[in-house]
Amino acid sequence: MSRESDVEAQQSHGSSACSQPHGSVTQSQGSSSQSQGISSSSTSTMPNSSQSSHSSSGTLSSLETVSTQELYSIPEDQEPEDQEPEEPTPAPWARLWALQDGFANLECVNDNYWFGRDKSCEYCFDEPLLKRTDKYRTYSKKHFRIFREVGPKNSYIAYIEDHSGNGTFVNTELVGKGKRRPLNNNSEIALSLSRNKVFVFFDLTVDDQSVYPKALRDEYIMSKTLGSGACGEVKLAFERKTCKKVAIKIISKRKFAIGSAREADPALNVETEIEILKKLNHPCIIKIKNFFDAEDYYIVLELMEGGELFDKVVGNKRLKEATCKLYFYQMLLAVQYLHENGIIHRDLKPENVLLSSQEEDCLIKITDFGHSKILGETSLMRTLCGTPTYLAPEVLVSVGTAGYNRAVDCWSLGVILFICLSGYPPFSEHRTQVSLKDQITSGKYNFIPEVWAEVSEKALDLVKKLLVVDPKARFTTEEALRHPWLQDEDMKRKFQDLLSEENESTALPQVL
């Protein structure tokens, strides 16, 4: 008996699950189920560990084997000379395990699969056993689809999209007709009724959600790893209520002995410091949205989908001078704002400069500016000194954290500008005749005249004003913003236009 009217009423009120309206889709043409990776026989039982391990490696599972009696060998002398080797079968990115008779397991190899009674669906509900069930008529011709799209860092995100009359449910929550939600590992998919569980979705590319604290899981769906560094790992996640993407940084307390840091400095109150950081608001710094204190720290951040500045300059790639100017102007505005709010970044580098898009002209935002507030000064500097390429001379020669101030950030900005303009770092371990530390503390950077011949004198002058060993003589952010190279009204107008595109209400910060 159909429950279409009941569920449609529920759909009209929406769902609290991570779902959002989605535009129309072009329906895929039908194809045989076997060619799409559906096993030839149905099963109602969950797999054992041996079955799972075989399939996850990209080899055929026991459900897909063919009797050897149906095959015969071709003698080598009868092999056609022009026969080309077969292409290897792509490894599946996800697996659906059937929970009921009449449904088959599915190895997801393609990027898009339609499910329903219509014969054009890649996964067609046409098993005779299924057709005899009382629920068969409640399934729509095109009930739902599972697909994946390219996300940040060229990774993939799996989604389920509801197109049914009676509802598609993920972990008992209604997706909603015309809406989608991301699928995470071990999600249970039910059709027409929330208790009519048909599939379990296994994402073969992500970790299980159960490793994360419950308070975090209640608000966010964790997904793929976006990156990792000395101070922690960053994962893509989704807000459950809105389906908006965020980035979540995970900082290990054990790695940084944060408990010991608190004992050594009783004034170090991470929760208080995070609340201060959350109040920071500038178009060129990453917004801190939320914070969870569990076995590790979880910092929920605004997501930038254009990648890191590092990706644009790695491998001796240089940027156009006009692009360097647009990016560097924004970096200076961001660091100036942090300094005005009493925050020294201490870890400025291309990896911590994020881009809003893949376009050459785009907004940038500074991230990882609050680590000293979370990890403690000593722990952070011990970590950073392991990779000193961007560290100021006074940091390398000081004991502990004494003896330096916000000028350290201006040195790091000078190193970043040098790399963007030239395509190579000013200080490098590859210069074996002088140690990296000695290069930095003496201010002897690697200047290649033929490379810098293409760079304007004004740009080079600003680099020199920032890479000054004496912090008292080094340019401040205010002085850098007043430098002739940055007195470019076309560049500032472009920045204002980019801000307006992102948010019509965002105004250009005042600069002296």
Results as ranks from 00 to 15, higher is better:
residue 3 R to H: 07
residue 5 S to K: 14
residue 6 D to W: 12
residue 11 Q to N: 03
residue 16 S to C: 15
residue 17 A to E: 15
residue 17 A to T: 09
residue 19 S to V: 14
residue 20 Q to F: 03
residue 21 P to C: 13
residue 23 G to V: 08
residue 25 V to P: 11
residue 28 S to G: 11
residue 29 Q to N: 11
residue 35 S to F: 15
residue 35 S to I: 11
residue 38 I to T: 13
residue 38 I to L: 10
residue 39 S to N: 15
residue 39 S to F: 13
residue 41 S to K: 15
residue 46 M to W: 09
residue 48 N to P: 09
residue 52 S to L: 06
residue 53 S to V: 15
residue 55 S to V: 08
residue 58 G to F: 12
residue 64 E to S: 12
residue 66 V to L: 04
residue 67 S to W: 01
residue 73 S to I: 03
residue 74 I to T: 14
residue 74 I to G: 14
residue 80 P to Y: 12
residue 81 E to R: 06
residue 81 E to K: 13
residue 82 D to K: 03
residue 91 A to W: 15
residue 92 P to R: 15
residue 93 W to V: 01
residue 96 L to V: 13
residue 99 L to K: 12
residue 99 L to V: 11
residue 99 L to G: 04
residue 100 Q to P: 10
residue 101 D to Q: 11
residue 101 D to E: 10
residue 102 G to L: 15
residue 102 G to E: 10
residue 102 G to M: 15
residue 102 G to N: 13
residue 104 A to T: 10
residue 106 L to P: 05
residue 108 C to T: 14
residue 109 V to F: 07
residue 110 N to S: 10
residue 110 N to W: 07
residue 111 D to I: 11
residue 113 Y to R: 01
residue 115 F to W: 02
residue 117 R to A: 00
residue 118 D to L: 15
residue 118 D to R: 06
residue 119 K to Y: 13
residue 120 S to E: 13
residue 120 S to R: 12
residue 122 E to G: 11
residue 125 F to Q: 03
residue 128 P to C: 05
residue 128 P to R: 05
residue 132 R to V: 11
residue 132 R to Q: 14
residue 134 D to L: 12
residue 136 Y to V: 07
residue 140 S to H: 02
residue 140 S to C: 01
residue 142 K to R: 09
residue 145 R to W: 09
residue 156 Y to G: 05
residue 159 Y to G: 14
residue 161 E to S: 10
residue 164 S to N: 04
residue 165 G to S: 13
residue 168 T to V: 05
residue 173 E to A: 10
residue 174 L to P: 06
residue 175 V to Y: 00
residue 176 G to T: 05
residue 184 N to G: 06
residue 186 N to K: 06
residue 191 L to M: 13
residue 195 R to V: 00
residue 196 N to V: 04
residue 197 K to Q: 02
residue 198 V to L: 02
residue 200 V to R: 12
residue 200 V to E: 10
residue 207 D to V: 10
residue 210 S to I: 05
residue 210 S to N: 00
residue 222 M to F: 08
residue 224 K to V: 06
residue 224 K to F: 14
residue 226 L to T: 06
residue 229 G to D: 06
residue 231 C to T: 02
residue 232 G to M: 02
residue 237 A to P: 03
residue 242 T to A: 05
residue 245 K to R: 09
residue 245 K to L: 13
residue 246 V to D: 04
residue 247 A to Q: 04
residue 248 I to D: 02
residue 249 K to D: 05
residue 250 I to Y: 09
residue 251 I to Y: 03
residue 253 K to P: 03
residue 256 F to P: 06
residue 257 A to Y: 11
residue 258 I to K: 08
residue 266 P to G: 10
residue 268 L to P: 01
residue 268 L to I: 13
residue 270 V to L: 14
